[in-house]
Design a protein around this nucleic acid. Sequence first.
DNA 1: TAACTTCTGGATCGGATAGTATATAAATAT
DNA 2: ATATTTATATACTATCCGATCCAGAAGTTA
Lengths: 203, 203
Amino acid sequence: MARTGRPRNFDRDEAILKAMMLFWEHGFESTSLAQLRAVMGDISAASFYAAFDSKESLFREVVDRYIATFGQATATLIDSSLAPREAIEQALRSSAKMQTEETHPSGCLLVLSASTCSFENVHIREMLTKERALTRSRLFDCIQRAVSNGELPASTDITMLTAVFETFLLGISTQSRDGISFATIDGAVTQVMGIWDRLADSA
Amino acid sequence: MARTGRPRNFDRDEAILKAMMLFWEHGFESTSLAQLRAVMGDISAASFYAAFDSKESLFREVVDRYIATFGQATATLIDSSLAPREAIEQALRSSAKMQTEETHPSGCLLVLSASTCSFENVHIREMLTKERALTRSRLFDCIQRAVSNGELPASTDITMLTAVFETFLLGISTQSRDGISFATIDGAVTQVMGIWDRLADSA
DNA sequence: TAACTTCTGGATCGGATAGTATATAAATAT
DNA sequence: ATATTTATATACTATCCGATCCAGAAGTTA
């Protein structure tokens, strides 16, 4: 049975995608309700709040959507059918590829859209901090798996090696914003993966 | 001869330092005039504008001050008395040390304080982009010097190797914000410098 | 058709925003 | 002493912010 009431005359899913592009480019606080309503097809404030409750609630939906789509660049990290090294290398290369694409804002939304914010929105920043922590723990698990496998020596400092790849991964956001090409970053990934190989050889 | 007129009853230099801490923590746009005036000793709006002209003008002064102080963590990059490798290693370790200190906001002000902003403040973001480009060119020159010296092979892809170190350097900001310790990042620096050594060995 | 549900247009809310006007206070210069 | 210069306190703009209220429009259900 179809739902009752007057149907909304804009595409909610499409509106979230448009909102994502704004939040991605300008960040949570610097994106205004007026801008959001404009890209959603000049909908009224009433329509906006009826559909999304609040700016913050919309942002949470946007983050979820981002993770389910563009954020899948790091999905290889939880694919246990891949060798840990390949999982990490693919996560780095796919992230570099995605973040430098010109069909959407550059860099990573989870890194850039609330890197700084006002006191009253600290919880928004912490929300993204938690998402990054999730990626970090997946990286950690990947490396731990390699140590268990014997691909990396038992003496490997997993926390430190996680930092090697994660620091580089996070840096791609600002590099992309600064206009560094995919080819250049991809070449850098090759060098960073050399760190893994050198540690593996010493096993 | 002393300057005429009623003397200002707050320390302008100290006020800039206080402003720096706010901009560093919350970013340019999310730091309000009211907050700035409060940390400057509850000065009036009139006093603020008499001393600094505008929020934007104050921010430019803050950036200059930051570069002259905390930003000196990367100063080794332009010290030609240092071997290129040592210059870069020191820049990375000093940056990691500075950015994780707990006496001021974590991360780098030049990376975090305007990573995203509204449309009307793009020039603020671009100002910081230019500062990062300066660091990048210094990194580039450092590596180029090593190639000229023969420390690195003539076949070295300087742009790519610049990206290796710069991407890592930029990533330290978010890592610091996420609470990763200096010891962990410093250990990661050691691994990243191994990339240099492997390239140097193949010379 | 009548009741019900949901969305929309338009006006509006209180509060925060960066910035300014005016008059006065506090110093130096002559 | 008087003029000049600069900073202050106080009051005040105009605008934008996210969010809400209400009446009516546009559907479905019974």
